[in-house]
């Protein structure tokens, strides 16, 4: 199961990276987020999986697709200057970072030690709610304020005359 969801996630991400059409890229992103939600289910965390599906593959991707259709930019525009060296340097930097980090993860004895014990305790909403409203009330209110501020900022940026 882990292998299936990991493959869905990574192939969705790769397809998003490769696709020329922006709408197709957004749909591949949905596939990738659904794979991540499956990984959360395997991590005994159905709360996070539900949130992932609702917020990411629901709200955020729909927002991106709306903007793509609004701006009518379905294809990537042709480059004015190719900037070939910068592209290759970017690819090289990402590949080096990825290879180094993979090597570090695979050869780390600390990760093996942490990953030893595995009695999975299923996360339920009651625990999360109790912790959220007992220990993190201030942060919860701050998040609400931040969402309000972001909403006002988005309207102010896009509206032509206020």
């Amino acid at each position: 199961m882990f292998l299936i969801f990991a493959l869905i996630t990574l192939l969705g991400a790769l397809a998003m990276f490769r696709s020329r059409n922006l709408i197709v890229a957004g749909l591949c992103l949905v596939l990738c987020f659904l794979g991540v939600a499956g990984l959360f289910l395997l991590l005994a965390n159905p709360v996070a999986a539900a949130l992932q599906i609702i917020v990411y593959s629901g709200a955020i991707v729909v927002l991106v697709l709306f903007v793509i259709m609004l701006l009518n930019s379905h294809e990537e525009e042709a480059a004015a200057q190719p900037h070939r060296i910068q592209r290759w340097l970017g690819a090289l930097a990402a590949a080096v970072l990825g290879a180094g980090a993979c090597k570090a993860v695979l050869s780390s004895p600390g990760l093996v030690r942490i990953g030893q014990e595995s009695p999975a305790r299923v996360m339920d909403l009651q625990q999360v709610g109790t912790s959220l409203f007992q220990q993190h009330v201030v942060a919860f209110e701050a998040a609400g304020l931040l969402l309000l501020a972001a909403m006002v900022a988005a309207v102010a940026l896009v509206k032509k005359e206020l």
Partner: peptide, 24 residues
């Protein structure tokens, strides 16, 4: 645990490559 961290790493690298290489 290593498998999950590996998937997270590869996902991060693909995202980074997308930001660095794609133009849109």
């Amino acid at each position: 645990l290593q498998g999950y961290i590996l998937v997270a790493l590869l996902l991060f690298v693909i995202g980074l490559a997308t930001v660095l290489i794609r133009r849109s």
